[in-house]
């Protein structure tokens, strides 16, 4: 009995550490499907709609990568992961990449052996409370009960924030956004804290959104971006440059609708390289030359993805803010495509 328990343990450990012999890019091509670790359900960023199709800001990046690698944006399998399971799922090879509001930190880059390849959303942590609580600042939350997702950076920021301000709180641990929302609406916690974008998304799905406010304090930097396994640099390049292609497309005014038109008329060498009309930039990272054109054709440029899923006018209603292009005072900046 003891022997078999030990054996099982080792087998489990061996499985956890996974077998990643071939490169991820080869695996994805051979499989004919991209497996994307997504949120368990955060409206606007990554959630299945009523008919089971995944939509959202992060989901569209997965679709763009599928279009770039496989030429078909529908060949994506979304695996929902919670704050606690996401990195294990990536490490074990269960998913090819994670695009689910994950914060880039030094220890995740080094200790967890992950690679954050880009920042697709610059965010910060905020607090949401019910209006009738009469709270206007997070510093007034002394003694409050706070719903917090476990296994996140926000959990650590929360502890730091309350300690720095010398006030106390009672944490209520929750596993994901849905559970947090249930506890928060049931009144089991006074405040819910997570990335401000996540708060906006959660607030948008509340039936009485106008009765809830997001407090003005942003207590941390939360650069969210796609994550791949450490050590597979080629796959990291694929994800990174597909994302940058979407940014460059916005910068150059290439949209989902006018790709072909631009390709036919442009004199801009960078645009030609991006769309695969000259050079072999795609082939250099192991993709088709038309890979980035396919990505833009599938989901549009960064700005289009933003405004379609979470931008002003949608229920989430987020301003571009830090996520505007660098040419418009934001932080989104792609290195030159040459």
């Amino acid at each position: 009995m003891k022997k078999s328990v030990f054996l099982g343990t080792l087998a489990a450990a061996a499985l956890v550490s996974g077998m990643a012999s071939a490169t991820t890019l080869d695996d994805v091509k051979a499989r004919g499907e991209l497996i994307c670790g997504s949120n368990t359900g955060l409206t606007g960023f990554g959630a299945p709609d009523a008919s089971g199709n995944w939509t959202g800001f992060d989901v569209d990046l997965c679709r763009a990568i599928a279009a770039a690698v496989l030429g078909d944006a529908t060949k994506v399998k979304f695996v929902p992961t919670t704050g606690e399971t996401r990195f294990t799922a990536l490490q074990s090879g269960e998913v090819d990449l994670l695009v689910r509001n994950s914060t880039w930190t030094a220890s995740r880059d080094s200790e967890l052996a992950l690679d954050f390849v880009a920042v697709n959303y610059y965010d910060g942590q905020g607090f949401m409370v019910k209006k009738d609580l009469g709270v206007s600042s997070a510093k007034e939350l002394d003694g409050a009960t706070v719903c917090i997702q476990t296994g996140t950076t926000t959990e650590l920021n929360l502890a730091d924030f309350f300690k720095e301000n010398n006030i106390s709180y009672q944490p209520v641990n929750v596993a994901d956004d849905a559970e947090a929302q249930r506890q928060y609406t049931a009144g089991a916690c006074d405040a819910f804290t997570t990335d401000a974008s996540g708060l906006a998304a959660t607030r948008a799905t509340l039936p009485d959104a106008e009765n809830h406010i997001i407090l003005p304090e942003i207590i941390s930097k939360e650069p969210l971006g796609p994550v791949v396994r450490h050590g597979d640099n080629n796959w990291g390049d694929v994800v990174r440059w597909t994302y940058y292609a979407l940014l460059i497309a916005e910068e150059k005014g290439i949209t989902q609708a006018n790709v072909e038109e631009v390709l036919a008329s442009t004199n801009d060498e960078e645009v030609k390289r991006l769309l695969g009309a000259s050079g072999d930039m795609g082939a250099k990272i192991g993709l088709d030359n038309a890979a980035f054109k396919n990505a833009i054709l599938a989901v549009g440029n960064y700005g289009e993805i933003f405004s379609r899923n979470i931008g002003e006018g949608t229920s989430i209603n987020l301003a571009r803010g830090l996520n505007a292009l660098w040419t418009q005072g934001g932080l989104q900046y792609a290195p030159p495509f040459r």
């Binding site: 220890s107 959990e155 650590l156």
Partner: peptide, 14 residues
């Protein structure tokens, strides 16, 4: 849960 996740030491924790 939290320690495993924050430190990335899955095997050791398990």
């Amino acid at each position: 849960g939290i320690t495993r996740n924050q430190t990335g030491r899955e095997i050791e924790c398990v």
